[in-house]
Design a protein around this nucleic acid. Structure first.
Lengths: 150, 150
DNA sequence: TTGCTCCTCACGTCACGTGAGGTGGC
DNA sequence: TTGCTCCTCACGTCACGTGAGGTGGC
């Protein structure tokens, strides 16, 4: 419905910090959708929503270190959620159905948050260990200034 | 000097959450040291310090998502630091040299901390976005309870 | 028409996984 | 002696990188 600018694969790659090859590969393995009407050999065309979707996938890949197979499951859940959003915005009347849609979304987000928090906790443990080591070195350095020659 | 129990590759792999193949591969590409006196075909033997070293490498790999080439550079720096620690403990007299050793260590730890904090910041941004989305869904869910049928 | 980006093979690479066949220590 | 874990090839796989040769839109 909106008159959005159309993007080519190179621009999408640059904006998401990846390469055209990676985008094509993700399409090949089904992580990204194939445009239905595209002629073989013709340019792939994208819009802003494609950029956002890819950005999210790449962030999950990089930050959570999950395989593309797991990412594909996550993407499937994400697509399901997009469908639900569409259903939602198309105006569902039934309040029971409305509640179901929202709770589906909440559970999905909850799952992702759990993964992220586990990672963050691991990072914080590592950070704390390094800071402890740094403290020890610094205190030795101070001791060194105090006792000039042993 | 200490009478430590000797470990085989399978036990090291299990304790570090990896596989024998990975350990052999890391040795092959020079990420892990090759034992000098080992006969071809004989068992690889490890001790607790090897386990610790491998654990640290694997954590950096998993949490920071760096390549084995970068990891090798980090490991080289780590080896250099180990050598410095040894020099330190062997009793360096020169206070200037002592200061140098400590400052080398501090700069190395500082570099790792920077990497870790960058990652943590990215994770926290992602977490914040997901929490915002969750808040929106929850508030809609509450609105739903308030207005039974639109 | 000239660049530029795009396209599709297709082979290469990195970081391992996975048997195949064989040897060595409780 | 029997298991068990280990060993060394060596080929397979996943997630792309990297040209090779060719086509399409400002």
């Amino acid at each position: 419905v909106s008159a959005e600018r159309v993007l080519r694969i190179g621009e999408v790659a640059q904006r998401t910090g990846t390469t055209p090859r990676t985008i094509r590969y993700y399409e090949e393995i089904g992580l990204l959708p194939t445009a239905p009407g595209r002629e073989p050999g013709s340019h792939r065309l994208y819009d802003e929503s494609d950029v956002e979707r890819l950005e999210e996938l790449l962030r999950l890949r990089d930050l959570l270190g999950i395989s593309l197979e797991e990412l594909r499951e996550l993407a499937a859940a994400e697509s399901a959620r997009a469908a639900l959003r569409k259903e939602w915005h198309s105006g569902v009347e039934d309040p029971v159905r409305r509640r179901e849609i929202l709770e589906e979304g909440l559970s999905h987000i909850g799952g992702q948050l759990e993964l992220i928090r586990g990672r963050r906790a691991a990072l914080e443990r590592l950070e704390a260990e390094l800071m402890a080591r740094r403290r020890r070195l610094r205190s030795r350095l101070r001791g060194l200034s105090g006792t000039p020659a042993g």
